[in-house]
Nucleic acid binder design. Structure first.
Lengths: 215, 215
DNA sequence: CCCCGAAGTAACTTTTTAGTTACTTATAGG
DNA sequence: CCTATAAGTAACTAAAAAGTTACTTCGGGG
């Protein structure tokens, strides 16, 4: 029987090798960062020879970029499927952050190592952010989010609220006494986020009721 | 004239050496993290011989811990001087994060490298967090913060709101178009935080007005 | 069937880096 | 004044770790 022309199962298989390297690199980089990651460890984890890694990706840094690019584009697709409504967006991204710590960690490594004035995949990420902001603005027009709030800062705040616990697990534990990965913590947090989302809605009385003070 | 017994200016001066090493190490670790930091670079920056660094601190890891411990205790003092009132706390911590990026970055490195289930200075940090939560609870009793909200999550959220932009400068720029260190960004953010602080107050109508929907 | 380029391997080199050894020099207390 | 002890120096070592060299093995087109 002739083997199907696509994906010969064993023997030589460049596609598969690339894939295995990327998956292994994701794990290693997320765990140890660029400086801490070991090329040999990635190769071992991927079950391939280190030489092939250089064959496919050039060097360690290019490999890191490839990993980051992949994760970012994967997530962008998710983001675009969402409305800007905090009541939907906050729980969604919070759950995503808890379920995929590697993703949060990659961003963090990027923040710490990189020159953040010029970032990988700049254009596409800018567009993704712009689309997100536009969605928020639409919700403001429909009266679902307070129009008092700068939509860019609403966006930034939604990211903060959802990513922070997974990004700073030690602070989360010190403050709440629970692990970010504890389902009970996640339930509590979901509850809290729901209330925060409500607080972002236009207040029923005259919107800017700053002077309702006791004094 | 007899030299004053305290702090002989030049020649041998262990206090000064320790101090210089810690300062240099702070810079290096904040910039590159534990794995990326170079002991030789720290020594050079401190203007001392590498051997002395080992003399005073044992090894690289102990030095990192010493640096972290120092920064943490410095900040704890600030925190205890504050009331739990978001309108005061949010701007204060936000400004602190912007003015001292090294501090935020150290926390981030800690989050990424460390075993965050057992953290440096655990006890004192737990106590510091507990005091902060107590202050929030007091404000809730006085009706300044919505009693609906879990005070631990309010605390965690205040940390998120203030630290996130400095912790993820690349996301901040992609979303807002401005650098975290741009005074204009900081002004905007202060403005925004003020409004968020207001949104955390008990809503003037019946607190849980979840069903004020349009539909 | 054979041969050329891509896939794959093992062992090597070069550089970097944490940590040490083996010394010299200042200084305080007796 | 003298000596024990801590501060300080320079040059070294051993262990990674990134990246290479010099090969072998497949497998598809002529």
């Amino acid at each position: 029987m002739p083997r199907p022309p696509t994906t010969p199962v064993s023997a030589r298989n460049p596609e598969r090798s690339r894939e295995r390297i990327l998956a292994a690199a994701l794990k290693e980089f997320a765990a140890k960062g660029f400086a801490g990651a070991r090329v040999d460890a990635i190769a071992r984890r991927a079950g391939i020879n280190k030489r092939m890694l250089y064959h496919y990706f050039g060097d360690k840094e290019e490999l890191f970029k490839a990993v980051l690019r992949r994760k970012i584009s994967e997530r962008r697709a998710w983001g675009d499927a969402l409305s800007g409504d905090p009541e939907e967006t906050l729980p969604f991204w919070f759950e995503a952050a808890c379920k995929d710590p590697d993703w949060v960690r990659l961003f963090q490594w990027e923040a710490l190592q990189g020159d953040w004035r010029r970032v990988i995949d700049e254009e596409q990420r800018l567009e993704g952010a712009a689309r997100g902001i536009k969605r928020i603005r639409q919700r403001q027009e429909r009266g679902q989010i307070s129009a008092e709030l700068d939509p860019r800062h609403v966006m930034l705040t939604m990211r903060s609220l959802t990513m922070f616990p997974a990004a700073f697990p030690q602070l989360t534990r010190l403050i709440t006494g629970k692990s970010v990965y504890d389902p009970e913590f996640q339930r509590e947090r979901m509850e809290f986020l729901k209330k925060i989302a409500m607080a972002l809605r236009p207040s029923s009385n005259g919107e800017k009721s700053a002077d309702t003070e006791k004094t």
